[in-house]
Design a protein around this nucleic acid. Structure first.
Lengths: 357, 357
DNA sequence: CTGAAAGCGCTTACAG
DNA sequence: CTGAAAGCGCTTACAG
């Protein structure tokens, strides 16, 4: 096995082997224009023979930018966050950037120190994945944005300069679908909001209000779906609950499980819809009606904001802490495709079904 | 908003401000021994005032090592892989390393080029997450290991110098549990093996053979659980199938769904067990008996192998392509805690239940 | 078209 | 205990 410590060929070695100056090799490497065909060939040959690869670190030192994008999140086990990471990685790799993943605010380690360390690495930009709006992470967003071009992916209205995941619209659509099925109203088991302003829950409320339906109090649920099971059990005792919109698919699964364990039928007695199109929604019985977000595409757009700035400092566009508003003219912000996926867990309410039967 | 492009203070600025030489500041930064208390204080003050942070890139250029660990995988949507990434990130961050995530072999982009790019960044080491044993990724493992200290996390026997996830033992235990419940034999819906040699499937077979049970042909299933649903439907027509060991929890859920849709009861008619302890197993009806692997701990151990080498080149220990055997004396390789989690999806076979009832 | 020189921000012998 | 100098591998004016 070759020793990993061996010295790798440097630009000097290539220059010597090709009989040109280091400057010329550098020019060749960076696609410089003024280069005789002869030298170009000689360098190409040397590069090939030595299997030379430019040292990205040295390059980063000169440009004071390491060709990487830093992803900061609290946790990647949430389906949406994980997909966002995959989308970011792919878009970044296409452009030659490396992706760095840092998990903060999960109670381990000092956030400030971790973030500082990250900044020292001089990534070209940073994307904060904050769907869950962890208060710890959120409180550092401004600090990070001061040092680095930053885009925050969250559930909030885009007027704040972030990249919204379009949850409001989804919540609205899912609820409207349930109402059109004939349900008098739709109950809501909500994920933590923590101050987001344009959430799936807001969409749910809006659809209800527009339809003139009663707006029940949302039932708060943590990210732990086992809590959702308890909520499902609880809701099973209320006959008027015929439709439930759950904050995500795991919570929907938990609610459904709670209902089933209490002897309710889903969807015959109660309809339940989820959110995100987590693949598990296809595996449960019943399978779960949901809202499909294209998280990978959103991740790709976050990268685009950081990497494809047309002219000038992307840091300005991604303003977080009172920076300029950003919605104007940022074409990448066009809405990301999303749609309702109807599966087995939703149906007309029992009263209508009975009337038809 | 402060412009991100502003020049950050360098070690020179600190030296000037503190009235000492750059060398002395460097010594201070690296905890050097010979330093008068007076200068130490002056430097500390300057660092504080300027909010100075050493440039990791410059440091990396000198040491020719970027303080980072490169994770290479095909996909992080698989539960185990995602947990491994989280475990790696945490262990790495604790030691001051950054984690880089690169997804290769998913059909997008040139693997060779991606890997070369990664190597150029000079991480201190690389961990290949290859539970699914993607043939493309696997074929590059040797190439990577030649350039970088590497540890491969997979399902194979540890004699190959990799870090096994302990699946063999798990498969054995799950199957044995099912047999002890009274099932005559256990059917197996297998995840892709692709040449792994110490898999959950091998453990299943071993348990069956030891018990003198018939060994049915494993039913191959892709990573897509919808295929598992079809398999569940198919198996529902065989009365002799009373117990099924599925390659992972998503597949178990799919199989269960197939069985339920065909009118079978789980576990009354058929028991189904999964693998990995994916949280979804708690949300389905019935919830899924499974084998809990501590993926985060395994990830942490991978980092430990790379970062805590006691004396000398970890590259040797992690030999992949015919390097020295590595099992001897590597104490971090002690078995990772894992255990059977019994939930609702398994029970004695119908015959026994009837006899009892 | 081409190259010598300076410099990016550090660390590390080496010499006081 | 302390500092001047060289050097890590590149890029970028600047001057031919």
């Amino acid at each position: 096995m070759v020793n990993a410590q061996q010295r790798m060929p440097s630009i000097k070695d290539v220059a010597r082997q090709a009989g040109v100056s280091v400057t010329t090799v550098s020019r060749y490497l960076n696609g410089g224009p003024h280069l005789s065909e002869q030298k170009r060939l000689a360098i190409a040959k040397a590069v090939e023979e030595l299997n030379y690869r430019p040292n990205t670190i040295a390059r980063a030192l000169v440009s004071s930018e390491f060709q990487s994008i830093a992803v900061i999140a609290t946790d990647i086990s949430l389906y949406g966050t994980m997909q966002l990471v995959q989308g970011i990685e792919q878009a970044a790799r296409q452009r030659g950037y490396l992706v760095t993943v840092t998990l903060v605010g999960n109670g381990r380690g000092n956030v400030r120190e971790t973030v500082d360390q990250l900044i020292r690495n001089r990534p070209i930009g940073c994307v904060i994945l904050d769907i869950e709006r962890s208060s710890l992470l959120h409180s550092f967003a401004g600090y990070i944005a001061k040092a680095l071009p930053t885009v925050i992916v969250d559930e909030t209205d885009r007027t704040q300069g972030n990249l919204p995941i379009g949850a409001y619209h989804g919540g609205y659509q899912v609820t409207q679908y349930l109402l059109r099925l004939g349900h008098k109203t739709v109950y809501h088991v909500a994920i933590p909001e923590n101050g987001n302003t344009y959430t799936r829950s807001f969409g749910w409320r809006k659809a209800l209000e527009e339809a003139g339906a009663v707006v029940p109090s949302p039932i708060p649920c943590s990210w732990d779906p086992r809590e959702a099971e308890q909520i499902g059990r609880y809701l099973s005792s209320y006959l008027e609950v015929t439709a439930i919109f759950a904050g995500n698919d795991e919570i929907a699964a938990g609610v459904i499980r709670g209902l089933l364990l209490e002897g309710k039928r889903v969807p015959a007695d109660v309809s339940v819809a989820g959110f995100d199109d987590n693949p598990i929604g296809e595996l449960t019985v019943p399978s779960i009606t949901t809202w499909r977000q294209d998280f990978q595409e959103i991740g790709a757009r976050a990268v685009s904001r950081l990497a494809d700035e047309p002219d000038g400092k992307p840091g300005d566009k991604s303003g977080v802490s009172g920076g300029r508003a950003s919605s104007e003219g940022c074409t990448v912000d066009d809405e990301v495709p999303a749609r309702l996926i109807i599966r087995e867990s939703t149906a007309p309410p029992p009263s209508l079904a009975a009337a038809e039967g």
